[in-house]
Design a protein around this nucleic acid. Structure first.
Length: 319
DNA sequence: AACACGTGCAACCGCTGCAAC
DNA sequence: GGTTGCAGCGGTTGCACGTGT
C-alpha cells in the first residue's frame, strides 16, 4: 500500500550517469553479478538508487547491447510483435536480445508510431483493417497492462497465444505475396557465430556525436568489459553476464543464464534467441507457419528463434 | 551566424506482482 | 493470512543535438 518511493531519501543523485559511475557499477556487477540491486548503492558507494542502477545496467552497460540504427528486419519484427503483444516492451525485447525494452519503446514512440500513423492516414479511415492494426492491439494491451515481472509475462503470452495466432493467420491471409521460405523446415539451430561480443560502445552514426563526450569513457568501460567477458577472467558474475553475451553470440546454454535469470527479464536473461540476428534472419514463411501450427511450441523455447525469423507480413505495407 | 523548432535518447516516476517475513 | 520490501515494467519527461529558416 502506499509504499514510499525507493529513492525518497535525500542524497540520491539523479540525472545523467558519469563515466566514473558507470565504471563503478560495471565493476560491481562484474564481481557480484546483476541482481540484488538494492545492495548496489550501499556496496558501491554510488549515490544512486537501486532502480537507477538496474536501469543503467540493463539499458546501457550490459554487454551485448546493440545500439543505434534498427534494421529493417528489426523494425518489422517490432511492429509485428507490437501488434501481437501490445506495449509489452519487455516481452518484445525478449525477441530482440540485442535491444533493450527502453530502446524499443523509444524507437516505437519516435519512429514507428509516426510511420504507422502516416500509413494509417494514407490508408484512410478504417484503412488498417485487416492486419490487425497495432492500434487495436495496443488498446487491448493497455487494458490488460502487462506489468508482469519475472516470467509472468510469458504466462500471459501463453494465454494470449491464441489471439496472437489468430492475428498472425489474418496477417498471413492478407499477404499472399509473403516472401518465399528460405529456411523451410529446418529449425534455425543456434548457429555458431564467431562474431566478437558486442560492447556497450557509443552508438555509431548520427547519435555518435551526442555520445562523443562520453566516448572516451565508454571505451574504458568497454575495455573493462572486454577483460571481463574473456573466458579466462571468469567470476560468477562473468558467467552471469556471459549469459547475455552468449545469448548474442550463440548461446552457451542454460547454465549461463542460471544466475541471473530466474527472472525472465528480457534481454539479459532472455532465451537464446540471439543468434537470430535480424539481419541474418531471412524471411521464412514456413517458419511462421510452423509457429502458428505448432501449438506445443512454448514461448521462450525455440519458438522465439522461429518468430524472430518470421517476416512480418502485414507491416510491410506500412513501409 | 543566430535563432527556433523538431527529434532522439537517457533517465525518472509511479504502479504492479511476487516473495519473504 | 496479512504485511512489507524488492524487482521489474511501461509511461512520461527533460535535455542535448540536429536541422531548417
Amino acid at each position: 500500500m502506499g509504499r514510499p518511493p525507493c529513492c525518497e531519501k535525500g542524497g540520491v543523485k539523479k540525472g545523467p550517469w558519469t563515466p566514473e559511475e558507470d565504471l563503478v557499477l560495471v565493476s560491481y556487477v562484474q564481481d557480484h553479478g546483476p541482481g540484488n540491486w538494492r545492495a548496489v548503492p550501499t556496496n558501491t558507494g554510488l549515490m544512486r538508487c537501486s532502480k537507477s542502477c538496474r536501469l543503467r545496467w540493463t539499458n546501457y552497460l550490459r554487454p551485448g547491447i546493440k545500439r543505434g540504427n534498427f534494421t529493417d528486419q528489426e523494425e518489422r519484427l517490432i511492429v509485428h510483435l507490437q501488434a501481437l503483444l501490445g506495449n509489452r516492451w519487455a516481452a518484445i525485447a525478449s525477441y530482440l536480445p540485442e535491444r533493450t525494452d527502453n530502446d524499443i519503446k523509444n524507437y516505437w514512440n519516435t519512429h514507428l508510431k509516426k510511420k504507422l500513423g502516416k500509413a494509417a492516414a494514407a490508408a484512410g479511415p478504417g484503412g488498417g483493417g485487416g492486419g490487425g492494426g497495432p492500434a487495436g492491439a495496443t488498446d487491448e494491451a493497455k487494458s490488460g497492462r502487462a506489468a508482469a515481472p519475472k516470467g509472468q509475462w510469458e504466462r500471459r503470452l501463453q494465454t494470449d497465444i491464441h489471439t496472437a495466432r489468430q492475428a498472425l493467420r489474418e496477417a498471413l491471409a492478407l499477404d499472399p505475396a509473403a516472401p518465399a521460405p528460405a529456411l523451410s523446415s529446418a529449425k534455425p539451430e543456434p548457429a555458431p557465430e564467431p562474431e566478437p561480443l558486442p560492447l556497450p560502445l557509443p552508438p555509431p552514426g548520427p547519435v555518435a556525436g551526442k555520445a562523443a563526450a562520453y566516448a572516451s569513457s565508454a571505451d574504458n568501460i568497454a575495455r573493462l568489459l572486454e577483460g571481463w567477458m574473456r573466458p579466462g577472467g571468469a567470476t560468477k558474475a562473468a558467467s552471469a553476464s556471459r549469459s547475455s553475451a552468449s545469448a548474442v553470440s550463440g548461446g552457451e546454454g542454460p547454465s549461463a543464464t542460471a544466475s541471473h535469470s530466474a527472472t525472465a527479464r528480457t534481454p539479459e536473461g532472455s532465451t537464446g534467441t540471439s543468434n537470430c540476428k535480424a539481419e541474418d534472419a531471412g524471411p521464412s514463411f514456413s517458419m511462421l507457419e510452423s509457429w502458428l501450427l505448432d501449438d506445443g511450441m512454448g514461448i521462450g523455447g525455440h519458438g522465439d528463434a522461429d518468430l524472430m525469423a518470421v517476416p512480418l507480413a502485414d507491416p510491410c505495407q506500412f513501409f
